[in-house]
């Protein structure tokens, strides 16, 4: 794995929903090195810290990376102002991806802005992927048609029932797991959702990989601020979300740590 840092041109930009943007940059070297589930640390002009943003799609032929992100504060707002023709200063690809083996039956579970990094799994697995995507309400739903276009069995859930399942992602997850024939679950989203998904997988004895978030500094493993408590060989220690993650085997993560 290797990463790059340069200013890359924005070649496509779309607003997907209120405050949620899709920006594609031309960065052949970074795109060629990227894996599904990795992220990039993107400079927001005027701010000390870069903003970690997950990679939504990798196109190695076109040499592009696509980022889908939500404006959460002033830094992401600055990044959202980048238009076609502008440059984005991108440090990436960073971290470890989902590493989904070929030919596996996978369920991906995404919550809100945790959905984008899972799209690459649908692209890889097609009809062998079931995508359970949870959102607050209909106006926050993103990427569902793209999961479906890649052939994934796509199930949308909303907290308010305005579209799809009325309720949380674990209800359809339980049903899908009960059908059997699942090799792996991959999840990204808010911590309560991740915890619920991990418990469901434990109860059904299905391997689970989770993509985690933490307040981050350098993005490359140097500053050791984006810690999460992990257990390996019976020993507890703080792993770095940026370098050791962001995708972890759920068995290694201590969510109450």
């Amino acid at each position: 794995m290797s990463y790059f840092c340069d200013k890359y041109p924005v070649i496509e930009k779309k607003a997907l929903a209120g405050g949620i943007f899709s920006i594609t940059v031309k960065c052949p070297d970074a795109a060629n090195a990227a894996e599904v589930g990795q992220f990039a640390n993107i400079l927001a002009d005027g701010y000390t810290l870069r903003r970690p943003i997950s990679i939504c799609e990798i196109d190695k032929d076109q040499g592009t990376l696509r980022f889908v992100f939500e404006v959460r504060g002033k830094g992401t707002e600055v990044i959202s102002h980048a238009n076609v023709g502008d440059n984005l200063d991108v440090l990436g690809p960073l971290g470890n991806g989902f590493k989904v083996p070929e030919g596996k039956k996978v369920i991906v579970v995404g919550g809100g802005i945790g959905v984008p990094p899972l799209l690459g799994i649908a692209k890889q697995c097609g009809a062998d992927c079931t995508a359970i995507l949870g959102f607050r309400s209909y106006d926050k739903v993103i990427l569902d048609k793209e999961f479906a276009a890649y052939g994934a069995n796509t199930i949308v859930c909303t907290d308010d029932g305005s579209v799809g399942y009325h309720g949380v992602v674990t209800t359809p997850l339980t049903e899908e797991l009960a059908k059997g024939n699942v090799d792996l679950v991959c999840a990204c989203g808010p911590e309560p959702m991740i915890k619920a998904v991990v418990k469901e997988c434990e109860d059904n004895n299905i391997p689970c990989r989770v993509s985690l978030e933490q307040r981050m500094g350098c993005g490359v493993g140097a500053c050791v601020v984006c810690s999460c408590m992990t257990v390996r060989n019976g020993k507890e220690y703080y792993s770095r979300v940026c370098k050791d993650g962001p995708v972890f085997d759920a068995k290694e993560v201590r969510f109450d740590g």
Binding site: T48, L49, G75, R215, V225, S227, Y238
Partner: peptide, 20 residues
């Protein structure tokens, strides 16, 4: 040393606070 419980970083105007 294991270090401190996260969060360990906060952005500030023209800087950061850390407690690794």
């Amino acid at each position: 040393k294991m270090g401190n419980i996260p969060p360990r970083i906060a952005e500030t105007p023209s800087g950061i606070l850390n407690s690794v």
